[in-house]
Design a protein around this nucleic acid. Structure first.
Lengths: 206, 206, 206, 206
DNA sequence: AATGAATGAGACTTCATTCAT
DNA sequence: CATGAATGAAGTCTCATTCAT
């Protein structure tokens, strides 16, 4: 109650707040939430420890803001591609390949962030809710895009969720390349085939 | 410094060690690794705090042993089903349904455990390695079982990984039922269809 | 280091200073000295945190000024009553009742203020001195008033101190009503009897 | 929830716990609650900071236990005197003098403790409750003792409260000797006269 | 004169691990 | 083998005060 979280309006303050988010998020993702202390975050962001609590409720709050930023960065280019051109049976395969490769590139960059975030989303209710909201938003957007492009698909929502999960798994396997004798290119093709079969299905009836 | 971890050989000692693993793992899964302290584990296991460090290197060590136990319990009934009867094109669909429902039941029980473990596997190298080994083991077993049942499948390993990921996703969506307007039964059927299409594929050529 | 405390002379400045005292004192009394921070005081007084240190040496300084204000407000109506009419053996009893009821009303209003102030007067030398000075001033005034009204009382100063203490205790018991089975009206009458006996004593000889 | 407050049963532990109470209370009374930190208490008691939280919920808890100890020490000799001999009209005056002088001696010893405690009792609900309970207990005991000694007094409870307050005030004035031109011996006699008048009152009817 | 962002020391508390018994 | 009291480093967060603007 006594502590007031400042909502910065001046340019300098906004910059400082963003710096804390950016640098704090970076550190947390690199070292893990429980292994990063506020002093480190402050130092890394070039501010004093006290100022953090002017802009954020607590350590977790920094992370939450970081997640928001991170999600936006991930989602934006994907939606942009999906919206950029009319999706047809002819261009859907290369479009999927492009999407997956973009996703992989992005996830490569935020590899560790990803790990720590998933980790926390499992054990922290607030963060988990953030994750779920974002996934739901993504799913709904994709459904809308498919419908807008005249795809008529039964059980479209369920399929989209399966597809999202499939692509995420695929990307993870590729990025971490955990199992040496797994051919990632083959795996990608198989995944795309699955997606195509889900999306074609009713189109075949034509 | 040169603390020696005892490998208990006497019955009493082994029982004590197992009790610590079992109870400690239970607590950690229930409350989270970072929110469970050794004093609690000791009390819950009915031992003194000091004795823990006779049997385990550190707190994490208890968890690692717990994970081993937990995986065995999850895997055993699945492999048992897959090994119990000849898998054919005729019985594979109901068999998959049975498998999925068993998996869901198991995961229901270890719901929180699951969360916390995934969480830790993302941020802790050792635990992650444990997870990967287990997944690899599972995948290889399934490949063997499929081959043993005369399925001839191209890119079988990649497909099995995709299937495992798919099923895991499916189970998670069902268990957490995060999105209200998602029909779980429909989703299950769609997932099974995907699996069947992956497995049938080359059989069709016959 | 050589921070100079401004003594404001312009009207605007004086008003600002008074606002800080008034609002700061209000907050401190409501929430306690240790639980009220300067940011809150500033906000509540409608000034910036920085300006506080132009007018006051430190946080305690605001409180000290508040106490001065507060005492004057308490003392004024009491002295006014005592000075308003000739005190005689005939009107002293109802006059005492009026005084006590006024005191209670005032203390009701500044209930929490009272608590926090007493509290601080015990642990802080400066504040304690302020309190003592005020009590002494009050006692001397009362002595003078009694003498002015031709009361000839042995050991008058000691008695007045006892009376002041008695009345304070009485008011506190009544305000806080800590003990349910204590009849406050009875207690008031008993206290008045004591006071009368102390004041009458030598008058009786006449 | 996770932290368990140990209730020590072994001799060593009890001694250590008492040491923390004794030394912690001493420090807090000397320096003030807000000006004494746990590290100091630990150091002064010759223990580590951590161990404090094995025996006490928090810093305040140490103080509360100290208060209990302190009260018992204050009350015991007073009650002992009151119980030691039959109280009659003849011996009540010297007995009161003895009581007051004992109280003063005790309060001298715990002078600073007293200050800080009163202070905290004003701003802290728990501590205030402790104080009130003790005062109530004391009042009831005195009522019983008076009745046991065949004093028949109207409004006895109210009078006892007034007396307790009176004596407390008296002692404080004497100890702090705040006002130079106050004759403490005179004041004591006047106070005793008041008490006698309150107690005699109905006896006179005989 | 005024602002309010920034500082940074210091407070309380936790807990994995050790060690005297 | 076992106990559980003890350690003390480390963590999060607060806030009186300062200072650049």
């Amino acid at each position: 109650m006594p502590t007031i979280i400042r909502v910065p309006k001046q340019k300098r303050s906004i910059e400082k707040r963003n710096k804390i988010i950016e640098k704090g998020f970076e550190l947390i993702c690199k070292k893990g939430f429980h292994n990063t202390n506020t002093a480190e975050i402050a130092k890394y962001a070039g501010v004093s420890t006290g100022i953090i609590y002017n802009y954020f409720k607590d350590k977790k709050d920094i992370l939450m803001e970081g997640i928001n930023l991170y999600f936006d960065k991930i989602m934006f280019p994907i939606l942009e591609i999906l919206n950029s051109e009319k999706i047809t049976l002819n261009n859907i395969e290369p479009l999927l390949k492009r999407l997956i490769s973009i996703l992989i590139k992005q996830k490569e960059l935020t590899k560790v962030a990803n790990e720590e975030l998933k980790s926390l989303s499992y054990s922290d209710k607030d963060i988990n809710k953030l994750f779920l909201n974002r996934k739901e938003m993504m799913a709904n957007r994709i459904v809308k895009i498919l419908e807008f492009n005249d795809f008529k698909i039964d059980n479209i929502l369920e399929k989209v969720y399966l597809i999202i999960g499939l692509v995420e798994n695929l990307c993870n396997e590729i990025i971490y390349n955990n199992y040496q004798n797994l051919n990632t290119e083959v795996m990608t093709n198989e995944a795309i085939n699955i997606i195509l079969s889900l999306v074609y299905e009713d189109e075949d009836l034509l």
